[in-house]
Each structure stands twice: as C-alpha cells, then as structure tokens.
Design a protein around this nucleic acid. Sequence first.
DNA 1: GAGAACTATTTGCACAAGCAGATATGCCGC
DNA 2: GCGGCATATCTGCTTGTGCAAATAGTTCTC
Lengths: 155, 155
Amino acid sequence: MGIQDDAAEIRASGWRTLAALHGLIDSALEKALQAEHRLSVVEYTVLEALSRQDGWHMRMQQLARAAALSSSATTRLVSRLEERGLLGRYLCADDRRGIYTELTTQGRELLRAARPLHDATLEATLTGAADVPELAPLVRALHDLEPAPASPAGS
Amino acid sequence: MGIQDDAAEIRASGWRTLAALHGLIDSALEKALQAEHRLSVVEYTVLEALSRQDGWHMRMQQLARAAALSSSATTRLVSRLEERGLLGRYLCADDRRGIYTELTTQGRELLRAARPLHDATLEATLTGAADVPELAPLVRALHDLEPAPASPAGS
DNA sequence: GAGAACTATTTGCACAAGCAGATATGCCGC
DNA sequence: GCGGCATATCTGCTTGTGCAAATAGTTCTC
C-alpha cells in the first residue's frame, strides 16, 4: 500500500502545484487585461481562439470547448462581446441550428492592442513564479514543452 | 523581433496547455466530489489544507492563500463548512483580530471518506489526459516533478 | 414523408466569487 | 494613553457560472 499511497501523494502534490501556478497566472492576467482593456481572461481567450481560426469564425460549441466553458456561459459571453461590437453572430448556411461567431474589425483591433500586455504579463508572472521554490520546476517544465499545435482545448 | 515573438508564442502555448489540463482536472474533481460528498473542489482543498496543519487549525488569511481565494470568499466558504459541522471557528488568544478555523472530527471523517475518490479521479483524469497529444507532455512533466513541500500556495 | 432520437443554442434559476466599504483590533510615535 | 495607520474579518452588491428545461433544426427509420 505504501507505494500506492506515494504515487497518489505525488499526483496530489503535482495537482496542487499546477493549481497554484494556474491561479497565479490567471489572476495576474485577469487584473491586467481588466484594467487596461476591460477584458476578462476568458474573453481574451475567446478572441484569441477566434483569431487563430481561418476566416476568424467558429461555432458556439467549438468556442465553448476552446474556452472550457459550458454552452450557456458561452452564449452569454458571446452576447457580451457582441454588444461591444467585438464579434458578430451569423447562421450556418448548411446546418441551421449552428451559429457562427466571427471577429469584427474592432475585435481584431482590440486583440492586437491587448496582446502585448497579455504576453508581457504572462512573461512577468512566469519569471516571478520561477523564483518560488515550489513552482520553479513546473515553470521550467512548461518552458520545455514542445510548442503545442493550434488548440489544446478544442478537439 | 522574430525570436521574441517565438518566445512569447511558446509561453502562450504553454499557458493554454496548462489552462486546458487544469480545467480538465478541475471539472472532473468537481463533478466527482460534488456527486459523492457534496463538496466543491475548493472546499475539499480547504479541508485537505487544514488536515496537513499541525493541530488542524489555520487562520482565515492563511486559508485564503492556500485556496487562492479572496478573504470575502473565504469567510463564506468557512461559514458553509461550519454550518455543516465540518469545521469550527475560534478566536486567537494572542491576536484577537484573528480567527482560527479548526477541523472537527466530522470534518476529518468526511475528508477521510472523500480522499480515495479524489485521488482516484485525479489518477483517472491524468491517465486520460496522457492520451491527448497536446496534454501528454505536461502530464509527464507533472509526474516528474519532485514532490513539493507542504504548501505550494501558502507563503 | 411522419415520427423518434439526437444535436445546437438559448433562457430561468440558484450560487459562489470579487470588490469596496464597514467594523474591530493591533501597533507605533509622541 | 491618544490619534494615526496597518491588519483581519465580515457584509452589500454586482456579475459570471453551471444545471436543467425550453426551443429549433437535423437525421434516421420505417
């Protein structure tokens, strides 16, 4: 049993570290993006995900997966961004249940403006985390990951 | 500039992977713990953090850091758990602003009951994630972390 | 081609989170 | 010991989230 307990404790400890680093980065990005561009992290993520799509459009459901959100949250998120003129909705021609969401010029503009802050905040937070003994190994590991393909969350 | 852009993109990609894995684990744990023990992940985290303290008690503020929560959220979280008899509050003798929270017998009992499910869910989710190409490298990296000391979030 | 089963999106509702402000306590200099 | 400032906790309010149910459209079967 000792061996199994150890394995479980290693996983639990890894999970705590992952959660801690995630929380750190998430709240740093949240504050920065909110303050400068009135964007939440999820909202930024959505804009960014859309910008990486050919044609800048995506279906609600894809978006939900990419943002790790429920479909109801996605509906409201898209509505918020639509009201701000950052993206638009239009019906799928082929499957009329589906709704495409498309980045507007204004949305692309805002993303272009926000990306530097996002990237800088991310870098600063990771650098800071590298000085925390418990987080440092994970930060190094992250850095050594092979750049992942387009969409780790979507599938 | 190309080199800097690449570095930023590597960090962004690592962050997306981290967030995706975090979301996966978090929602799996949330569903499992909620269904079987009526506990959210944060609640479990708090009970677990308390159980790793000598004397099973901790101040609100420490707790807030350990759970990566605001102090107001911590107040309400502790209230919820207190109402269920899982922990108790008592004043610090030395600093009367401070309030200690202490795991009750019932709280330790529930934690003991929930831990196996938590650990099993974590293992299952990690195993599942190891089959997703984008997540696999991070899962491996997590596994290879040296077991972190007591509290990665608290400091 | 009518009905059943499935999928995509939206809405009603309850809840947990953060921020700002309130209150109580500790600590410091004078 | 008294004002001034910092710290610890709690409360009011607003907002974003998930679940479950409602609605609309597709696909499959006969």
